[in-house]
Amino acid sequence: MKGKIGLVLLLLGIVIAASFGSRNGDRHSRFREASAKVAAAEKLMGVLEEGRELNKTLKAEGIDLSTLSMDEHIALMKSDERLKAQVKKAQSELKKLRQWGMESDQDPALFLHLAEAERDAIGLPGPQERLISWFQTGGLGWLVGVVLIIGGAVLARMQVAEDNAGTGTGSGGRVDFVATMAETRSRLSALQEMIADLPMDAPANKARLAIDSLGDDVLNPLVEGRGQLIARHGLAGFAEYFGPFSAGERNVNRCWSALTDGHSVVAREALENAVAAFESAEKQYEIVEGRG
């Protein structure tokens, strides 16, 4: 139950905290609105600049627009794809800028200048002001969200602790480190026998399948359930025995690779190292358990 309430609080808290945390302060919002107008004006100026560049290109090709009659001009605009596209683009941007309030006879450069002046009058808040302004606007909601998250996390942790102690109602299988190690020892011993006399470059499919099944049936379930071990011993205690356990696992993997490569000597060596590492893990586990 605690876990479920914790999750609900987490979801609620994160929605509230992230929403209010991402809010902009008032002055910053107004600055961004004004910046949008500047951006629109700049876009039109960019298109006009492109037009001037196109004129230069046309001039280099021997077409001087300023010397053409109106009819020639219109004919060219209809025939030249570059001009057609450019005019269409400029018209579209011009239309948008009129909606922004630009007069039909107003110079776009002047409009841009006025938009920049409007933006600069609001001014970009400095880092400290921005922080204060955000906190005044969204700080309280954000704080409530953070408190809900922390509350939810504490409840969820309590549930995990209860589950670990065997008193909780959480689901999931229990992991038994000692039994897993016993099973691992027995399987590794069988594997050692299996490859004891294996010559170099001999096929070792059976041994590799045995390693695969050791991973699937014995080692991986323990790895999946390691959260219970962490909850039981703390991360530091868990690390003491899970490090050697992982080294054992890695040596089992090395044995698999060496068998695939036909190197039975390295495979046997790796298996010996794995057995030693798992033994060390068992000893460390006992020490950690002994500490309570």
Binding site: G21, P127, A156, V160
Partner: peptide, 24 residues
């Protein structure tokens, strides 16, 4: 160079990230 850094979001996000990390 014009002092536009989203310090408010970095700060609120960092605290939020820290709080979330308590969740198991």
């Amino acid at each position: 160079q014009s002092s536009d850094a989203a310090v408010d979001k970095y700060a609120s996000g960092a605290v939020l990230g820290g709080a979330l990390s308590i969740f198991p």
